[in-house]
Design a protein around this nucleic acid. Structure first.
Length: 619
RNA sequence: CGGGGCGUAGCGCAGCCUGGUAGCGCACCAGACUGGGGGUCUGGGGGUCGCAGGUUCAAAUCCUGUCGCCCCGACCA
């Protein structure tokens, strides 16, 4: 097919990687482009609705989608850019199995640890397998089989694969599906310094990758999570609809996930000489911070909020100021616990004898300081941790550890002693930048990439070693690096759409140009065909909307599908003049057909690096 | 996994409360007109009413169970 079309056009194809050329799909009537006028019922995320309405994807099951021809093209655009940048960075493409034998996961210990997100299967012999949600095990196995010496290092293997994670709740279309396409890379180095260099190389490659895609993004410092390790950055596409809360400094380059961003420790309040003892007051029915404030005439800032956790099966009470949010990641890090989750209220009550909703850092008998061993609950068995801000309060209101009651006039530095103090709150916009002190600004983001320094976690567990320069056997120093290919498709739309439809960045558009003949015969159609052929000959992917539809239908479909550049062949086509519209800006102007293809080629080439299409270059 | 909601034509929905010939808009097919932002008219085709039981002379409608899906939350290398 390809060869035939190229021959017919009498030229040699020169499409870059990831491009198809020369098939017959560029006529809209042959493109299978089932656009929908009404938004689908399945989900209300903008990008998902536009992908379905624009004829890119169809839902098959929860979190599982089919890609239509146009959808495939966008995915391939993403893959092509990712491949080029990975290859440029010296990574080597491999292709690992989607179905992975259980033994490998048992070896790393994750068969037990990973939980129900890991979709497990059995074959006909009853042997166990899983659908790979990530591929550390497989790639470590690959490396340990063939890499014996430091002389073979460093190595970086990557693949573009369909992953499966049996998410508890798939949502938002491609953004958080169960089946999704991901690029994952794994670096192997002989030394920590080498691993850091590999990390840096990947980081830089990611910056280039997302720039070329025309996305507004920010690399942010991220939590290293269960995996441990010391270095991790997320690449976040900035979008109000994003799931992740970020803070970034306006003055320097610092940016972080709010979970990761350290908060400053304010000075402890000094003990006021004239403070009276705290007292318990009845606050019937006051379940929320706001209700307590209304009842007692205080502000959330003056309150101490208890957040109850279950950490490795043990009850933990975390105290933060009433206007703050507890940061589970920091709590977990502080406790050094393996599993931390918000506690079930009934479980907590049963385990501690304390009334959830009325828990405070001062023992129920009101005698003042807590006992040595944490103090709270029967037997004093509840571990307590307070945010540093709590100890900076001069007086405060907190739960009384009695039902329907709070304690007023609490002086934390005096009354709270059986607890540890740490930074456990969520960072918020306005906090000082940990690097330069300027005020942080808040953003929301969609995580499209993640780079991670792993160290020896997997190589050690799986006994993947090489012989080092000094003759000793050492585990590989590793890093892993993911890019959510299909998620990018969604994220790009979240960031690039308007009320009419998608506004693809040139680098990601399924076709950068659409030609719209407003009549299906006569000079308008002839001009459109000529422009299509000329663009095609220049290696530019183009759709010609040859359908016998009214102009309004074609305009609306073109806007919905989101071709970056529209060439309209209307009445003036017979005089050699067409109209060009830039989808994103809505700019429109008439321009002579003569030389148009050159101008289009130049404008697209300029925009392909990630920049905008400029009207001036097209006129 | 907790809370809420929805399953009726390809898509979006009404009908259900109060049981009695399964409907509307868009899309689709044929024809005519029309032709710069989802146009008009005429005539058509298309439905196991999610599934399984039950009640009833009769069930889309009432009852029980079950499956699927969406939203909020919890969770997320």
């Amino acid at each position: 097919m390809r060869g035939r079309a190229l021959a017919a056009a009498g030229r040699v194809g020169s499409g870059g990687p990831g491009r198809w050329r020369g098939d017959f799909a560029m006529r809209a009537s042959r493109l299978h482009l089932p656009t929908l006028r009404d938004p689908p019922k399945d989900g209300d995320t903008v990008s998902h609705q536009l992908l379905v309405r624009g004829g890119y994807i169809r839902r098959v099951a929860a979190g599982i989608y089919s890609f239509l021809p146009l959808g495939v093209r966008v995915v391939e655009r993403v893959k092509a850019i990712v491949r080029e940048e990975m290859n440029r960075a010296g990574a080597l493409e491999v292709f690992l199995p989607a179905v992975v034998p259980a033994e490998l996961w048992q070896e790393s210990g994750r068969w037990e640890k990973y939980g129900p997100e890991l979709l497990r299967l059995k074959d006909r012999k009853n042997a166990e397998f899983c659908l790979g949600p990530t591929h550390e095990e497989v790639v470590v196995d690959l490396a340990r089989k063939d890499v014996r010496s430091y002389r073979q290092l460093p190595l970086n293997f990557y693949q573009i694969q369909t992953k499966f994670r049996d998410e508890m709740r798939p949502r938002a279309g491609l953004m958080r599906g169960r089946e999704f396409v991901m690029k994952d890379a794994y670096s192997f180095d002989a030394t920590v310094a080498g691993a850091h260099a590999s990390y840096r190389t990947m980081y830089d490659a990611y910056v280039r990758t997302f720039e070329r895609m025309g996305l507004a993004f920010r690399p942010v410092e991220a939590d290293t999570g269960a995996i441990g390790g010391s270095m991790s950055h997320e690449f976040q596409v900035l979008a109000d609809s994003g799931e992740d809360a970020l803070v970034a400094c306006g003055a320097c380059t610092y940016a972080a996930n709010v979970e990761k961003c350290p908060s400053p420790a304010p000075a402890r309040a000094s003990l006021p000489g004239d403070a009276g003892p705290s007292a318990i007051v009845a606050t019937p029915g006051a379940k929320t911070i706001d209700m307590v404030c209304a009842a007692l005439g205080c502000t959330p800032r003056q309150m101490i909020k208890a957040v109850l956790y279950e950490a490795d099966g043990q009850p933990v009470a975390a105290f933060v100021r009433g206007d703050r949010e507890a940061n589970e990641v920091k709590v977990k890090a502080h406790l050094g616990a393996g599993l931390v989750a918000l506690a079930d209220a009934a479980w907590f009550a049963k385990a501690t004898g304390l009334p959830p909703g009325y828990v405070g850092p001062v023992a129920a008998d009101g005698s003042g300081a807590l006992g040595g061993n944490g103090g709270l609950g029967h037997g004093g068995g509840v571990r307590c941790v307070a945010d540093a801000e709590v100890m900076a309060l001069t007086t405060a209101v907190c739960g009384a550890n009695e039902k329907q009651a709070h304690r007023q006039g609490v002086v934390p530095v005096r009354d709270c002693s059986g607890l540890t103090v740490a930074d456990i709150r969520m960072a918020v916009p306005g906090d000082p930048c940990p690097q330069c002190g300027a005020a942080l600004r808040g953003f929301r983001g969609i995580e499209v990439g993640h780079v991670f320094y792993l160290g020896q976690k997997y190589s050690q567990a799986m006994n993947a070693t090489f012989v080092a320069e000094d003759g000793t056997e050492k585990p590989f120093e590793m890093g892993c690096y993911g890019i959510g290919v299909t998620r990018i498709v969604s994220a790009a739309i979240e960031q690039n759409h308007d009320e009419r439809g998608i506004c693809w960045p040139v680098g990601l558009a399924p076709y950068p140009v659409v030609v719209l003949p407003l009549a299906i015969d006569g000079p308008q159609a002839a001009t459109a065909e000529a422009i299509e052929a000329a663009l095609e000959a220049r290696g530019i992917d183009v759709v010609r909307d040859d359908r016998d539809e009214r102009p309004g239908v074609k305009f609306n479909d073109a806007d919905l599908v989101g071709y970056p550049l529209h060439i309209v062949c209307g009445r003036k086509a017979q005089d050699g003049v067409v109209e060009v519209k830039i989808r994103r800006t809505g700019e429109r102007f008439e321009t002579p057909v003569a030389g148009l293809v050159d101008r289009v080629a130049a404008a697209l080439a300029a925009a392909r690096a990630g920049g905008p299409l400029h009207a001036a270059a097209l006129q």
